[in-house]
Design a binder for these strands. Structure first.
Lengths: 243, 243
DNA sequence: TGACGGAAAACTGTATACAAAGTTGGGGGC
DNA sequence: GCCCCCAACTTTGTATACAGTTTTCCGTCA
C-alpha cells in the first residue's frame, strides 16, 4: 500500500473515534487526490481494515463506493487497486467536464447571491496566495473548493452531482499526467475572470470561460502516448531476437 | 415487497443456476423500470436474500450498487426503498439528459457504421410494430435499446456512461409520472427522424432532434405539484389550530 | 376515544469463519 | 539456462452470528 500514509492513518484513527465506511471513502479519495496513494496501488481489504480498525465488511462497502466513484478498480477475486485512467479516458473526462461545467456556469451566471460570490472570491484569493508561497497542496485545495461550490450551488442538482464526480476525476488525472517539469497547474487569472463573468450575469461568457480554463488545464498535461506494458513486451521480444 | 414479482423471481431462480450480486442489480432494476416494484416499495435484505437464494452479504452489495445508480434509496438503519424522484428532480434529470444525449448524438452523426445503423432502424421498426399491436412493455424495450445503443457507441465513453445512467433515470420517472390517461409514451416518427439525421451526418440537426424528442416526452408527463406528505402535514397542522 | 409508553419484532451494522479463487515461488524437466 | 507445473500462501466471496437501532403493536391512562 503506502507505508507513510499507512502510519499516518493509524495515528489519526487512534486519536479519533469510531470510523464509518463513508470516512474510509473520504480518506482514501483524499489520499488518491493528494497522490499519497499512486495509481495501481493495491488496497487489500484486511490491510485497510487493520489501518482503520474495522473489519472487512466495512472496508468492502467503502471499496464498492469508491469503485462507483471511479477512484478504485474492483475486479472479481482480485485486490482492489487505485485506478489509473488511460490517456484516452483523460481526454474524454475533460471533454465531458467542459460540457457539464460550462452548462452549470451558464445557468449560475447572475444567480449567485453575494455571500457565495464573496466565498468564491476568498477562495480565489487564497489560491493565488498559496501559489505565491509555493504551497501546492493548499492551492489545489482552494481551486477544488471553487469548482465544488459551483457544483453544489447548481440550480440543477442532477447536473451538480455529475459535475462533482467529474471534478474529482479530472483532479485525479491531472495528478497522474501533469508534466513533471511543472511545479503547479496554476492558471493565473482564470478563476478571477470566471468569477467576474459569473458576477456580471453573462451566461455565455461564463461558459466560454470554463471551456477555455479546462482546455488550458488539459494543455498542461502530457497526454502523448507512452511506452506502456504492451510496448515493453514488444521491446523485450526484440531483445530476445537480438540475443 | 411485491408478491407477484416475488414468486416469479423465486421460480426463475430455482430454474436457473447461481445468482450473483450483479444479477440481483439487473433484476431489481428491470422490475423497477417495468413498474413491477413501485416507488417506495420496501426491499428488506433478508427478504431479497430469500427470493434470490443468497445471504444478506450479496444482497447488501447489490443494494449499494442500486443506490449508486439512483434506483434505490439506502438510509442508515432503515430498509432500502425503491426511490421516488421528486417532480423537481424529474425536470432536472430531463434537462441533464438533453444536454448529454444532445452532445452524444451530435458527435455520433455520420460516424455510425452501416451495421449499427441497421440495428437502430430495426429497433425503431420493432418499436412501431409493438406500439401498433398495443404491446407497451415491448415498445419500451425497443425504445430503450435505441438510446442504449447511442450511449454505448458514443466515441466518448465517459459521456456514454453518463447517458446510460440518465436514460435509466428518465425511464423510471416516466413510469412514475406518466399521465394515467395515456396508454403509451410513444412519439410517432421521433426515432426514425433522429436516425435519418444521424445517418445524414448532420450533428446539429441530430442534437436539435434529441432536444425536441426529450421535450415532447417530458410534456407527456404530469409534473404539476401535488398533495404530498409535506402538504398533508401543514393541512393537519391547520386543522389542529382550528380545533 | 385518543394519545402515550414500552416491550417485542423486524431490520440493519459489524465481526468472523469457512470456502473458493488467485498469486507466488521453488523444483523438476527440457 | 529457461520454462512449466504444482503446492503453499494470500486474498476475495459468501454465510452466519450477535449487537444495536428502528418500527410496530398492544395495553394503559387521561
Amino acid at each position: 500500500m503506502n507505508n507513510a500514509w499507512h502510519k499516518e492513518m493509524l495515528a489519526e484513527v487512534k486519536a479519533g473515534g469510531r470510523i464509518s465506511d463513508q470516512d474510509i471513502v473520504e480518506k482514501v479519495r483524499r489520499a488518491v487526490l493528494m497522490q499519497r496513494l499512486p495509481p495501481d496501488t493495491k488496497l487489500p481489504e484486511v490491510t485497510l481494515g487493520e489501518v482503520f480498525g474495522v473489519s472487512r465488511s466495512v472496508v468492502r462497502k467503502a471499496l464498492t463506493r469508491l469503485a462507483s466513484e471511479h477512484v478504485v478498480d474492483q475486479r472479481p477475486n482480485q485486490v482492489a487497486r487505485v485506478r489509473a485512467p488511460s490517456i484516452e479516458e483523460t481526454r474524454e473526462t475533460f471533454e465531458a467536464r467542459r460540457l457539464v461545467e460550462g452548462e452549470v456556469a451558464a445557468q449560475l451566471a447572475g444567480q449567485l447571491d453575494d455571500e457565495i460570490m464573496a466565498t468564491l472570491e476568498t477562495q480565489a484569493r487564497l489560491e493565488t496566495e498559496a501559489y505565491e508561497r509555493g504551497d501546492e497542496p493548499a492551492r489545489i485545495e482552494h481551486s477544488l473548493t471553487i469548482h465544488h461550490l459551483l457544483a453544489e450551488h447548481s440550480p440543477n442538482r442532477v447536473l451538480g452531482a455529475m459535475l462533482t464526480d467529474l471534478v474529482l476525476r479530472t483532479s485525479i488525472v491531472i495528478a497522474l499526467y501533469k508534466r513533471p517539469s511543472l511545479a503547479s497547474c496554476y492558471l493565473e487569472n482564470d478563476h478571477p475572470r470566471l468569477l467576474d463573468r459569473l458576477g456580471k450575469g453573462d451566461g455565455e461568457a461564463s461558459r466560454t470561460c470554463i471551456h477555455e480554463h479546462l482546455h488550458s488545464l488539459e494543455a498542461l498535461l502530457d497526454l502523448r502516448p507512452r511506452e506502456n506494458s504492451i510496448d515493453l513486451m514488444s521491446i523485450l521480444g526484440r531483445t530476445a531476437e537480438q540475443t
